[in-house]
Measured scan of single mutants.
Amino acid sequence: EDNEEPDPLPDNWEMAYTEKGEVYFIDHNTKTTSWLDPRLAKKAK
């Protein structure tokens, strides 16, 4: 069984939802937002 907990978001990142219910990510370090999960970006490298 694969019950892995997702990795926590990096420091100062926040997950948020648009009015349409779409997930996006806020990077408080750089005051930017991203559609890409920063956790996935790390694994892709």
Rank of each mutant, 00 (worst) to 15 (best):
E1K: 14
E1V: 13
D2K: 15
D2Q: 14
D2R: 14
D2A: 15
D2E: 08
D2S: 14
N3D: 06
N3L: 12
N3P: 09
E4P: 15
E4Q: 15
E4V: 13
P6W: 14
P6T: 08
P6A: 12
P6H: 15
P6S: 12
D7R: 14
D7W: 12
P8V: 11
P8I: 08
P8N: 07
P8L: 13
P8Y: 07
P8G: 11
P10F: 02
P10K: 03
P10R: 03
P10N: 04
P10E: 05
P10V: 03
P10I: 02
P10D: 05
P10G: 04
D11A: 12
D11R: 13
D11I: 09
D11T: 14
D11E: 13
D11H: 11
N12H: 14
N12C: 08
N12A: 09
N12M: 06
N12E: 06
W13G: 01
E14S: 09
E14V: 06
E14L: 03
E14Q: 13
E14N: 07
M15L: 11
M15A: 04
M15H: 04
M15E: 10
M15G: 04
A16L: 05
A16G: 09
A16T: 05
A16W: 02
A16K: 09
A16M: 07
A16D: 05
A16F: 01
A16R: 08
Y17D: 05
Y17T: 11
Y17H: 14
T18G: 05
T18A: 06
T18K: 04
T18C: 04
T18L: 03
E19D: 11
E19P: 12
E19L: 09
E19R: 09
E19G: 09
K20S: 12
K20C: 12
K20D: 11
G21E: 08
G21L: 05
G21H: 10
G21R: 08
G21K: 08
E22D: 09
E22A: 07
E22P: 01
E22C: 05
E22Y: 05
E22H: 08
E22G: 05
E22F: 02
V23W: 06
V23G: 09
Y24E: 01
Y24D: 02
Y24A: 01
F25N: 01
F25R: 01
F25T: 00
F25K: 02
I26T: 01
I26S: 01
I26V: 12
I26F: 03
I26M: 13
I26A: 03
D27P: 00
D27E: 03
D27G: 00
D27Y: 07
D27I: 00
D27L: 00
D27C: 03
D27M: 00
H28K: 06
H28G: 04
H28L: 06
H28Y: 03
H28T: 05
H28W: 05
N29R: 10
N29Q: 08
N29W: 08
N29C: 08
T30C: 07
T30E: 08
T30F: 02
T30L: 07
T30P: 00
T30M: 05
T30Q: 08
K31E: 10
K31M: 12
K31G: 10
K31W: 07
K31Q: 12
K31P: 01
K31R: 12
K31L: 08
K31A: 09
K31C: 11
K31Y: 07
T32Q: 07
T32H: 04
T33H: 00
T33M: 03
T33K: 03
T33N: 05
T33S: 07
T33V: 06
T33Q: 02
S34C: 08
S34A: 04
S34P: 06
W35G: 03
W35H: 04
W35R: 05
W35A: 03
W35E: 02
W35M: 07
L36P: 01
L36Q: 07
L36H: 06
L36K: 12
L36W: 10
L36M: 10
L36T: 08
L36E: 09
D37Y: 01
D37K: 07
D37G: 03
D37V: 02
D37S: 04
R39Y: 01
R39C: 04
R39N: 06
R39L: 02
R39W: 02
R39S: 05
L40K: 15
L40N: 15
L40A: 14
L40M: 12
A41G: 15
K42W: 15
K42N: 13
K42D: 10
K43D: 13
K43W: 07
K43G: 14
A44G: 12
A44E: 14
K45Q: 15
K45V: 15
